[in-house]
Write a protein that binds this DNA or RNA. Structure first.
Lengths: 100, 100
DNA sequence: TTTTTATGCAACTAAAAAGTTGCATTTTTT
DNA sequence: AAAAAATGCAACTTTTTAGTTGCATAAAAA
């Protein structure tokens, strides 16, 4: 999922969808400087990563923001940051111990 | 920087360094199932993304966890999540308004 | 000082990702 | 019914990324 957000085009699409409004492939392709097919591929990568959801309505396929995986990514980063913090703490108390 | 964490090998290295202990390239290569050179490349990608820091001591080059960019990533995800939340709020109040 | 250990550089190969093109299909619109 | 709009599928090219190999160098150890 970091890989999915790692591509600038995908990050831009994801960011754009964060306002909650679902958008069709063609709408998302309009202001991208690449083919509709390329955008389609990116959307599928985002979908596979669980970052967006897709449902077909009539002839168009709407992609919408999906918050679950986002939360998971945040949780992971928090966990790493937490480990780092406690490592710092241990280091600190090690330095401060044994004043003799 | 999402791209840097997007590779499983790099994520593993990064995760491992989160205990705060700096490690040399060879130490990090020992239990990786790839060449030392490959690990070196990954470390440089992580360094370029500001996720780890490197400093040479004697003949070995020690890589250590670097928290700044991590915080930035968290901030970004928080911001996206925040936008999503307020979009939900607006939608909710739109639905609830105008009971007439 | 000879030998090991830890690393860097550069050229190369291989594989995955990004993007394009052409054509077919389905749903709207006219 | 015919035309237009929105997609999907598949094959293909291009670019990047991952990983390897061989050789050179600097520091530490014997």
């Amino acid at each position: 999922m970091f890989a999915a957000l790692g591509d600038p085009t995908r990050l831009a699409i994801f960011d754009r969808l964060a306002d909650g409004k679902p958008r069709s492939i063609s709408v998302l392709s309009d202001d991208a400087d690449m083919t509709r097919q390329a955008v389609t591929k990116h959307l599928r990568v985002l979908e596979a990563a669980g970052l967006v959801q897709n449902h077909r309505v009539g002839r168009e396929s709407q992609y919408a923001f999906c918050p679950e995986q986002l939360a998971e990514a945040r949780a992971y980063l928090d966990q790493v940051a937490g480990r780092w913090e406690s490592a710092l703490m241990r280091l600190k108390s090690f330095v401060e111990e044994d004043p003799a």
